[in-house]
Amino acid sequence: MDKTILRNLEEVYPTLLVKLCADGQVNYMPVQARLGADLDSFLRYCSTIKPRRYRIQDRREVYLSVRLSDHAGLEKHILSFTMDLSEGGCFVASSQVWEKKQKLYLDIICLKDRTPILCEVRWSRSWGINPFVPGMGLKFLRITKSQQEQLLEMFSPAMRKAI
């Protein structure tokens, strides 16, 4: 695993170095000084932390026109746009209410391969509830290899400037 990723995780999560000595003794050392110097203080600190998710995939602000439907043929669809994009999904702006775990089909207009991408609604945000843009986080369930490659190209610095 990349050392940079590990260092970033150490900034977010309490981290404990564990060393097994040749004599069978186990030594523990919290990486962050604020956690104390022994295993008990580390565990006490960990028990006070509220669990949270940490996004593994890089997410980029990318605005792409899309069609969205709950039918594979996209006969009945809404027009919208993405606000961010990752290898595994995207955020699509929408004032329409979508249920968590609902399956949807996404057509990203700028892709050469226009095969509808099967997605699942991971979470949604309703219109007018808070100051954020309404919409939903989508996870790609079925996406073609060529669509993946085209989306990954959008992460290159030159392509991001062109979007």
Rank of each mutant, 00 (worst) to 15 (best):
Q150S: 12
R122H: 03
I5Q: 12
C119Y: 00
I108Q: 07
T82M: 02
L74F: 00
E153R: 11
S156E: 09
R142M: 05
R60A: 04
N27K: 15
Q96G: 06
Y105V: 01
K100I: 08
S86P: 04
K76Q: 12
S94Y: 00
R7T: 08
D107T: 02
K50C: 04
L79D: 08
L9W: 09
I143D: 00
E75T: 05
D40M: 07
S126P: 14
C119F: 05
Y63D: 05
K139A: 11
K161E: 12
L74R: 03
H77W: 06
K145V: 07
F132Y: 14
C119W: 02
K103I: 13
E149Q: 10
R55Y: 13
I108Y: 07
L151F: 03
L35P: 06
V121M: 01
E61F: 06
S41W: 05
E153A: 11
A162H: 15
Q57N: 12
I108E: 04
M29G: 03
V12G: 00
E149P: 00
T115H: 10
F140C: 07
T115Y: 05
I129K: 14
L64M: 14
R55G: 03
V133D: 06
E11V: 02
S65G: 11
Q96H: 10
S80I: 10
L79Y: 07
S95A: 13
R160L: 04
L111C: 08
P51C: 03
R125T: 07
V31P: 00
P131C: 02
I49R: 14
Q32E: 15
K50L: 09
I129S: 10
D70W: 06
Y45A: 15
